[in-house]
Simulated assay, not measured.
Amino acid sequence: MGAPAPSELAARLSAIDERIADAARAAGRAPEEITRIVVTKFHPAALVRELHALGVSAVGENRQQELTAKATELADLDLQWHFIGQGQTNKAGAIRRSAEVVHSVDRDRFADALHRAADGDDVLDVLVQINLTDDPGRGGVAPDAATALAEHVLSLPSLRLRGVMAVAPLDEEPASAFARLRGIADGIRTIEPTATWISAGMTGDFVEAIAAGATHLRIGSAITGPRPDRG
């Protein structure tokens, strides 16, 4: 399946932004305090260029290779690249060279690898990813270890701790999961008051995320349409 026609893309983007604004106002929040990140996994760079023409500035990628390729091809555009996938330590340098924000710091070793990849005195914005499930194989640090990981990130001068990120479990109501995340975020802010970002909420649950205080939403298919066939 190809990319949506520009008019269709604009309509999807506008519809999502209206829903975000409505959800923010319902939660007593200003829509302007919420950053909408468009996740373009498996979509071509040409779609990102169309999104940019529609006013999109924040783009998310799950895979390092795709992040690097698109960021290189679209270097002429003013885009903020967010890496939201599971990070491998041996790819930390490539991730850091292309991303302005890394949402998925879930262990000391990955944080250390990102720090070692610093170029000069540049500072990378990062979030601690929290695993809200009972499956230790899922991405993210266990909630009871989140503060320790945040403290480790704070010890690395080339990383700036911005807050937390999580994906709601499939077997729990999103509102409940995001309330737990909010509690963890509040705890981390007691050691770093400027770590105010909460990256939570995707196409199916961003309304609940906004109600729980999410500042960054990661929305893909509702804007981009179905992912293209990779075959």
Rank of each mutant, 00 (worst) to 15 (best):
A3M: 10
A5N: 09
P6N: 10
P6C: 00
A11P: 08
R12F: 08
I16V: 15
A23D: 06
R25E: 04
A26D: 11
G28S: 05
A30F: 05
A30L: 09
P31V: 15
E32G: 07
E33T: 15
T35M: 13
I37N: 14
H43E: 09
H43C: 06
A45G: 14
V48M: 11
R49P: 11
E50G: 04
H52C: 11
A53C: 06
V56Y: 01
S57L: 11
A58M: 12
Q65K: 10
E66N: 12
L67I: 12
T68N: 13
A69I: 07
L74K: 12
A75P: 07
L77W: 02
L79H: 12
W81N: 13
H82P: 15
F83R: 12
I84R: 14
T89F: 06
S98D: 07
H103N: 14
V105Y: 02
D106R: 03
R107C: 10
A113E: 01
A113V: 10
L114I: 10
R116M: 11
R116W: 12
A117R: 04
L124I: 09
D125G: 03
L127K: 07
L132T: 07
L132A: 08
G137C: 06
G139M: 05
G139L: 00
V141M: 11
A148V: 11
L149T: 12
L149S: 01
A150T: 04
A150S: 10
V153C: 12
S155E: 04
L156G: 14
L161C: 10
R162E: 06
G163C: 10
A166V: 02
A166Y: 01
V167R: 00
A168W: 13
A168G: 04
P169A: 03
P169H: 00
L170H: 13
P174Q: 15
L181N: 00
R182P: 02
G183Q: 04
I184E: 01
I184L: 04
R189W: 00
T190A: 12
T190L: 03
I191H: 01
T194A: 12
T196V: 06
W197E: 14
G201L: 11
M202Y: 14
D205C: 05
D205G: 09
F206Q: 05
E208L: 06
A211L: 05
A212K: 05
G213K: 13
T215S: 03
R218G: 02
R218I: 02
I219T: 10
G220I: 14
G220F: 09
I223N: 08
G225E: 03
P226H: 03
P226F: 00
R227D: 06
